[in-house]
Amino acid sequence: MNSNSSKSKKTLSPEAEFSEKLTFRDYLIATEQEANKPLPLWRLFVPLLIQTGLILAVPFQAYYTDMSGRTVILQGAVADREDIRDTNSVLINYNISRPEILRRFPGWGGLLRQNRGRNRRLTQGTNLYAILQERESYNRGVPRAWRLVRVSGRLPTSLPADEVALKGVYRDGFITYGTQTYYIPQEERSEISNDLFRELDDRYQRRQPIIVKVKVDTQGNVVPISFWVGDRNYRF
């Protein structure tokens, strides 16, 4: 080679020299052999195990809440009766899902201030905690819903023994506590809609009250267990 290239060779390190001559494509071809070696089996099974663990974490969370959580009874109503025919599911709204009810309880003003909500409204995605108090009584075998005591923006660190905090998220004018959708199995469909529509005839225009049993863990996460329409019980 000429003197020019030999001069530049002196100043360049071997790596840099190597890099200057090679393009990305050359590198890919040069490392093809190395990169396409058959992989050992653990390279599949370790990530597969982790992925399986991630999937299993979901039912585990449900079982954990079911086993260790506290049973809480909530009052609700079916949000839209047309749902049953169209989507095979009902959306249940709790009483404590409605901001106009929560507004009357202590802690709401503090929540609004903390939340910098404008127009006296919460911003989308706000987390809040509804604190409920137990009521030990039954009505024709159906337990009575717990009583709302106050609202808080943070998870309370200590609560009296008969109180529990439920974590909710504010979205589109409602506060959601866990899942509130019940997917109706085929065989129950006519039964459940009969229940709802019979009640509709009885006291027209009034929403059919539903009593929902949920489990709540220490973090306030809510998992629904079962609900009563009239005196009939349905499991989630």
Binding site: G178, V223, P224
Partner: peptide, 25 residues
């Protein structure tokens, strides 16, 4: 199993799971 999680939680768990697979393979 009637677990309500946020959307971001779901996508992050999904993404990290796939990321581990991409790293190993």
């Amino acid at each position: 199993f009637n677990i309500g999680g946020s959307t971001s939680e779901f996508f992050l768990a999904w993404g990290f799971g796939v990321l581990i697979m991409a790293y190993c393979l």
